[in-house]
Design a protein around this nucleic acid. Structure first.
Lengths: 195, 195
DNA sequence: CTTGTAACTGAACGAACGTTCGGTTATCTT
DNA sequence: AAGATAACCGAACGTTCGTTCAGTTACAAG
């Protein structure tokens, strides 16, 4: 068997470089990073990493990272499955929360929740909601709306009578906007950060 | 008054370039991007953007983005405050969810929640939890633990008798691990994604 | 040991890089 | 109209870039 290239070690080194420099290394920098004496030696590993989707060629022929390297969160299974052993860990895929949660970055905003009107939907005061502007809300979407001058977060609904807003809290009642309903955005995700 | 450089437009262009290429543009690319005929013209705006913290110089003298450009989410106020007018919008700061939620990327994992034992804490089945390995849990932290062979998510507690685990659901009861308690990690954030 | 194969080296090449600087243009003030 | 100031251009420079290739080294198989 011929010698084998250790790619997982190189991935670690590339991630470390990215954290320090905020960019992808050049070929000569990779040579130094990987411990080669010649930058021609990194051509082969780079092509493999491109094929595996960790690197990509930019329009000027230079190397750029894909989200597989810049992402930081390892994806695991369920809570019940628990944590894998250190041996399995190296094979895990990573992802970026930004890319995962945000489809249209230019139209997505972060709001802090105040009030408990959506508490039965698991949205508590102090939670953060990712809101996407400009979409058309569907039945049962949670939306941020300006109804009769006030901004609120509610379930969106629509029937023969017209548009209505439902809270997720029995203490509140359904709202049917008297004058106009202005939809600020659709809640795409809820985020709660501890401590 | 001398002519004024429009920086906010350049920021938009740089963000767009970053999304397409996954890297920072060179000086000549910036000249084309900004509409200059000479790359010498971009030296001044670049220095201003560095001073403002949007760009940084890398170790090889090249330009790299800071998180102020690579981040994608605009930060707003509370739900009640609603959305700002487009005029105010340009002044908004952006942030990265990854950086905001994850302190130690190499030790942070994403798990899917199964079971309803933490439902009163607003953690539903199907939600995602960001778990950080290796820390020491404090009173009332939510942790992922392996107790008597099974992985669960519970509130962590400690008293004279020893360590105990509390669910956030009246249908379940406090657990005092018989043999050993292995702490897999501490839950740092809960994420719920819609649709 | 000999052979085959893959990894690696070192040097060379044109292209693109960041930097510098004298000269030109545009805009505001007086 | 004249002057001041900052923005911008175009060309030049040494450096680094990615790419290529003939030659060398390391290792497994026979």
């Amino acid at each position: 068997m011929p010698r084998k290239i250790d790619l997982s070690e190189k991935l670690t080194q590339l991630r470390s470089f990215n954290q320090q420099e905020g960019r992808a290394p050049s070929y000569s920098e990779m040579a130094e990073l990987f411990g080669y004496a010649s930058k021609a030696a990194v051509v082969a590993p780079v092509q493999k990493l491109i094929k595996l989707g960790y690197l990509q060629r930019s329009s000027n022929g230079r190397i750029a990272f894909t989200s597989k390297i810049t992402s930081q969160i390892s994806i695991l299974g369920t809570v019940q499955a628990g944590f894998p052993s250190p041996a399995e860990e190296e094979l895990l895929d990573t992802m970026s929360l930004d890319e995962f949660l945000v489809a249209r970055p230019e139209a997505t905003y972060l709001l802090t929740v105040s009030g408990d009107s959506m508490i039965d939907a698991g949205i508590h005061p102090g939670d953060l909601v990712l809101v996407e502007k400009g979409g058309v809300p569907r039945q049962q979407d949670i939306i941020i709306a300006q109804v009769d001058g006030e901004w609120t977060m509610k379930y969106f609904g629509k029937d023969k009578t017209g548009v209505y807003l439902d809270p997720a809290n029995p203490s509140y009642t359904r709202i049917r906007p008297k004058s106009s309903l202005s939809v600020g955005g659709i809640v795409r995700a809820v985020i709660r950060k501890y401590k």
